[in-house]
Design a binder for these strands. Sequence first.
DNA 1: AGTGAGGCTTCCCACGGTGGTAAGGTCAAT
DNA 2: ATTGACCTTACCACCGTGGGAAGCCTCACT
Lengths: 151, 151
Amino acid sequence: MNIGAASKASGVSAKMIRYYESIGLLAKAARRENSYRDFDERDIHDLRFIKRARTLGFSVEEITRLLGLWRDAQRPSREVKQITGAHIADLETRIAEMQGMVAALKHLSAHCHGDDRPACPILQDLGGPEISSASPQDKRKRAAGLREAAL
Amino acid sequence: MNIGAASKASGVSAKMIRYYESIGLLAKAARRENSYRDFDERDIHDLRFIKRARTLGFSVEEITRLLGLWRDAQRPSREVKQITGAHIADLETRIAEMQGMVAALKHLSAHCHGDDRPACPILQDLGGPEISSASPQDKRKRAAGLREAAL
DNA sequence: AGTGAGGCTTCCCACGGTGGTAAGGTCAAT
DNA sequence: ATTGACCTTACCACCGTGGGAAGCCTCACT
């Protein structure tokens, strides 16, 4: 199976397949005499796994662990659940942050005429003196995950 | 005002102040004889403006426009409201996507024992055959905005 | 007057993921 | 034998942020 075929079969772009291989997320594909990569069913499975996990917002780092667990038939489901739980919490934190932004923005926007007049509470707020930001944005380490996947 | 003082006064790291200057978001700061940057009140205002706007998830590109509007006393508030509205819509799309992920993950997690047994519906789902993903992730251009701000 | 600490300066590197593109090899079919 | 569709590697870009090196500058203290 060529990389193009693997790409179609998995929904992962050829570009990303090579990338995943390069960072060790995906096992190094076999090579034909032409030096073309040759993917088997196992690779396709892994690619689909990765694709699906990315769709669910897991970071590549998390997927590495999940794939490792997948391959270990003996793994305790505890670990999988733990990773998933942490990811859910992460997503929820980010959702809450964004909801805070939306609320603040909607509030400002509601008081902005949005016509030819220059008066605008949105800019007033942005430019104004110390403003009590909704939450001071904790900067805990957080996988890039979805953010880029959504680009 | 040195860059350190400006950083403290605005809450923007010295690193980012230089970066914002380099990309033209912030006007080039005056220099002293030592070649040290010298910030005035106007710069501090702009930095606070940027800081606040980043907190609200605006991308640097959007902030460039907003700052331009701020400086134009004659600007029609329409434009500001329009930018803000687009940003709100963007945020809401991303929130919805993440909420979809959370829902799917919670569903899977609920059916995973999370103990020593290896059986795990989460991995089953990830590794399983074609799954009907919540939404096929539209990839419309979207400013990086929050994603990185939240790191 | 010298020394050390802590500014400041520029410059490059890394991250996460993804896309682009150029320069070359290969294949299959006309 | 040529064309066009594929493959290969290798590099660059994005966004926003942090890290660090190497070299000045300044100030306070000895």
